[in-house]
């Protein structure tokens, strides 16, 4: 079997790419994509840890605590989807007001 550390390295790399994207990109949509990469890295972590750390006593009737890794990942999908829906709506609002999706170009607030 592939060792756990391989999965964790992939997740860590994905997370770092996401952080780099958030910090280096100026376009709001690209920053959002970076955030999504970070969330996906979390999902890989959760499912890999769950697969390697948990022994399920009974496949037909698993105890709830034996499933918390996948349940966590499922909630991540839902919340990430909600976040993107709200985020894109906000980006459209910004575009309508500023004719741009680059947050730095919207700069009336300073001091």
């Amino acid at each position: 079997m592939v060792p756990l550390s391989w999965y964790l390295i992939v997740a860590a790399a994905l997370f770092s790419i996401g952080v780099f994207g958030v910090l280096s990109r100026r376009n709001g949509v690209a920053v959002l994509m970076g955030i999504e990469l970070m969330l996906n890295a979390v999902n890989i972590n959760l499912v890999a840890f769950w697969r390697y750390n948990t022994t399920i006593a009974s496949v037909t009737e698993p105890v709830p605590s034996e499933l918390n890794g996948v349940v966590f990942a499922a909630f991540m999908f839902v919340v990430a989807a909600a976040e993107v829906a709200v985020g894109l709506a906000i980006i459209i609002t910004v575009y309508r007001n500023w004719r741009s999706v680059i947050p730095e170009e919207a700069d009336t607030l300073r001091g």
């Binding site: 709001g28 947050p103 009336t108």
Partner: peptide, 14 residues
Amino acid sequence: TDRESAESGIKYFL
């Protein structure tokens, strides 16, 4: 319709 509100929204969100 307010530019400042939109700006504050996207900053808070990101």
